[in-house]
């Protein structure tokens, strides 16, 4: 199977996600599946983009990486998340403590609500530093200052004593990034980190993530519904639709020669600000609601290239159509290079 081929691909693979199934156990028999098939790798020091419309399950995949599915009443039903010899999918709450923060950092979705409103910036960052290593108060403060400077906060000595709501959205998100990297984790999970920010600020945050990756040699998973925003900074992309990874590949490959009709549609629906008056193209139909997925390919209802065999049988799995470029479209070969 081509999925297995994926595993043997490279030695710099940090996390290996295989056949991940996430859902909510509503009653003893009734399971609501939110993610049905997630398959991808996270490589060392790469920025991996995770794109998809809301409801595609990308946030759930993120949560499975930081072990907070339970708080949303969700759980992993099957699959593995291999990370440094551990299977995160089967980790006990106690074991998670040694992974969260120190191995995997987290940048929250909204700059507005991601920071604890009742703690000063210095306290929040200090708390994360103090956690594992016994440090003197003075050292903690120095380290916090270092981190704030690292994320390009002006006047860190002032910001240190400020509360999150006293900061602008951009600054707040910088602080959150600083908080995520305090313990030098291997991976930083950033779930839509630019929601609600100005376009210019968004770009700055993206630039900051890129810097951190290259300076600290961390892997970053960047979740977004906005392909245009992240393909500048990402090395590779994972495209999700209706709980399934539909395409995995390098940014250049996915952007230039998409192998899945959904990716093609996503590419087309970007607002082309360079061409004034150009029509705004949207993907037709709404993403299928969780639990109301069609038979066969989940995109078949909305697909421009739909064939008869697309609407029957099981949800198609990822296949390595080209080297290092996987697609879950049954007719991927025929799509090759159709994107402009």
């Amino acid at each position: 199977m081509s999925v297995n081929a994926m595993a043997s691909e490279s030695s710099d693979v940090l996390v290996e996600i295989r056949d991940l199934v996430i859902g909510i156990q509503r009653t003893r028999k009734d399971r609501l599946l939110i993610v049905e098939s997630a398959n991808f790798d996270i490589r060392r020091a790469e920025i991996l983009g995770l794109v998809g419309e809301s409801g595609s399950g990308k946030t759930m995949v993120c949560r499975s990486l930081i072990g907070t599915l339970k708080r949303r009443s969700a759980s992993i039903f099957a699959g593995t998340i291999k990370f440094d010899g551990m299977d995160l999918a089967k980790l006990e709450e106690r074991q998670w403590r040694s992974v969260r923060g120190s191995r995997i950092g987290y940048v929250p979705q909204s700059a507005l609500t991601g920071a604890n409103p009742v703690m000063t910036v210095g306290k929040q960052l200090g708390e994360a530093i103090r956690r594992n290593r016994k440090r003197k108060e003075k050292d903690v403060r120095r380290r916090v200052m270092e981190l704030l400077e690292l994320v390009h906060i002006r006047r860190p000595e002032v910001v240190y004593d400020q509360y999150p709501h006293q900061l602008s959205g951009g600054m707040r998100q910088r602080v959150m990034i600083a908080a995520a990297i305090t313990q030098d984790p291997d991976i930083v999970v950033a779930d839509e980190p630019t929601t609600g920010l100005d376009v210019t600020v968004q770009a700055e945050i993206m630039k900051l993530l890129k810097e951190i990756r290259s300076e600290l040699k961390m892997s970053v998973i960047l979740v977004s519904h906005d392909l245009a925003l992240i393909d500048e900074v990402c090395d590779r992309l994972v495209v999700m639709h209706a709980g399934t990874c539909v395409e995995v590949g390098s940014v250049s490959a996915v952007a230039r020669t998409p192998l899945h009709p959904y990716t093609i549609a996503l590419n087309r629906s970007r607002i082309d600000i360079s061409t004034p008056g150009a029509p705004l193209i949207t993907i037709k139909g709404n993403p299928p609601a969780v639990g109301e997925w069609p038979a066969g390919c989940r995109f078949s209802d909305r697909c421009d290239f739909v064939q008869q065999d697309c609407t029957v049988g099981r949800n198609p799995v990822l296949v390595e159509v080209r080297p290092n470029h996987w697609s879950a479209c049954l007719h991927a070969e025929r799509l090759g290079g159709t994107s402009e």
């Binding site: 930081i66 072990g67 907070t68 708080r71 403590r97 969260r100 923060g101 120190s102 995997i104 950092g105 987290y106 929250p108 979705q109 909204s110 609500t113 991601g114 920071a115 604890n116 409103p117 009742v118 703690m119 708390e127 994360a128 956690r131 594992n132 959150m176 908080a179």
Partner: peptide
Amino acid sequence: EFVETGVVRGVRWNRFYWL
């Protein structure tokens, strides 16, 4: 979301419940 952040940060339970 900051509750999530707190969980990921690995805050001790008593601090977590209070702060």
